[in-house]
Amino acid sequence: MASIFTKIVQGEIPCHKIAETADFLAFLDIRPLAAGHTLVIPKEEIDYVFDLEDAQLSALMVFAKKVAKAIEAEVTCKRIGLSVIGLEVPHTHVHLVPINQISDMTFGREPVKMSNEEMAALASRIAARL
C-alpha cells in the first residue's frame, strides 16, 4: 500500500508545496513544530533513509539545503534544524524546522496552530525565495 507521502507525490492528497524536482518534493508539515516546518522527501518510496543509494542520499541533502536556505530567508529563526527520525511514515523524509533553541526540535510537543490559508501563504513566500 502506498504511503501518505506517495499519495501526496501522486496528487491524491493535497499539500502546501515549497519545491519540486523530478526526484524530490518539499512541502509544509501539517503538524508543524514551528511555522515553516517542512518535509523533504524522495519521490521514490523508500522506507529507510540509509537504504537510499549514495547518490540519491547526497542529492536529497543538496535539495534539502536549498529548501532550508529559502525557509531561513523567510522565517525569523537562528537556524534550520534538521531531523531524520523515520518511524512516523514508512517513506524517507527529512524534517527542516526553524529553531531558536534546542527544545524547538522536541517532536512530542503540541504542533503550532496555523490555518490552511496561513500555510498556503507561507508556502508561497518560501517557494518564492528559491
Rank of each mutant, 00 (worst) to 15 (best):
residue 83 S to H: 09
residue 61 M to K: 09
residue 115 S to W: 08
residue 49 V to L: 10
residue 109 R to T: 15
residue 76 T to G: 09
residue 91 H to C: 07
residue 111 P to R: 09
residue 31 R to P: 01
residue 6 T to Q: 09
residue 114 M to I: 11
residue 42 P to V: 02
residue 43 K to C: 05
residue 23 D to T: 06
residue 96 L to C: 05
residue 9 V to I: 08
residue 99 I to K: 09
residue 104 D to G: 08
residue 37 H to V: 05
residue 43 K to L: 05
residue 66 K to V: 04
residue 77 C to N: 07
residue 69 K to S: 13
residue 73 A to C: 07
residue 46 I to E: 03
residue 97 V to M: 05
residue 110 E to V: 10
residue 62 V to G: 07
residue 90 P to A: 14
residue 112 V to M: 13
residue 20 E to V: 02
residue 16 H to E: 11
residue 71 I to M: 05
residue 20 E to S: 10
residue 47 D to Y: 11
residue 16 H to Q: 09
residue 44 E to N: 11
residue 21 T to I: 07
residue 121 A to I: 12
residue 52 L to V: 06
residue 103 S to T: 14
residue 107 F to K: 03
residue 49 V to S: 02
residue 112 V to K: 15
residue 51 D to S: 13
residue 13 I to R: 11
residue 79 R to M: 10
residue 17 K to T: 07
residue 8 I to F: 07
residue 108 G to F: 14
residue 72 E to Y: 15
residue 103 S to F: 10
residue 105 M to Q: 11
residue 49 V to I: 15
residue 101 Q to S: 14
residue 89 V to S: 02
residue 123 A to G: 14
residue 130 L to H: 04
residue 11 G to C: 05
residue 71 I to F: 04
residue 47 D to M: 11
residue 63 F to A: 10
residue 104 D to Y: 09
residue 105 M to S: 10
residue 6 T to K: 12
residue 25 L to I: 01
residue 74 E to Y: 02
residue 10 Q to Y: 00
residue 48 Y to E: 12
residue 32 P to M: 09
residue 126 I to A: 01
residue 19 A to N: 02
residue 87 L to S: 11
residue 82 L to K: 06
residue 130 L to V: 04
residue 60 L to W: 07
residue 38 T to N: 01
residue 122 L to F: 10
residue 42 P to G: 03
residue 71 I to E: 02
residue 129 R to C: 12
residue 82 L to N: 08
residue 103 S to H: 12
residue 71 I to Q: 03
residue 119 M to K: 14
residue 92 T to F: 00
residue 10 Q to D: 15
residue 13 I to K: 13
residue 112 V to E: 13
residue 37 H to A: 04
residue 29 D to A: 06
residue 6 T to G: 01
residue 129 R to M: 15
residue 71 I to C: 05
residue 80 I to K: 04
residue 28 L to V: 07
residue 127 A to I: 00
residue 85 I to D: 11
residue 122 L to P: 08
residue 127 A to Y: 00
residue 29 D to K: 08
residue 81 G to Q: 02
residue 75 V to P: 03
residue 48 Y to M: 10
residue 39 L to E: 00
residue 2 A to V: 12
residue 110 E to P: 05
residue 39 L to H: 00
residue 119 M to G: 09
residue 85 I to Y: 11
residue 69 K to E: 15
residue 74 E to I: 01
residue 49 V to T: 06
residue 71 I to P: 03
residue 91 H to P: 06
residue 15 C to M: 08
residue 65 K to Q: 15
residue 60 L to V: 08
residue 18 I to H: 02
residue 88 E to S: 14
residue 54 D to A: 14
residue 34 A to L: 03
residue 108 G to C: 07
residue 85 I to F: 14
residue 29 D to F: 04
residue 111 P to T: 08
residue 45 E to C: 05
residue 97 V to S: 03
residue 70 A to R: 00
residue 121 A to Y: 05
residue 94 V to E: 03
residue 80 I to E: 04
residue 104 D to R: 08
residue 20 E to T: 01
residue 68 A to C: 06
residue 69 K to Q: 15
residue 104 D to P: 10
residue 97 V to H: 04
residue 32 P to I: 08
residue 115 S to F: 11
residue 83 S to W: 02
residue 43 K to Y: 06
residue 130 L to E: 01
residue 70 A to K: 00
residue 122 L to D: 07
residue 113 K to C: 06
residue 123 A to L: 06
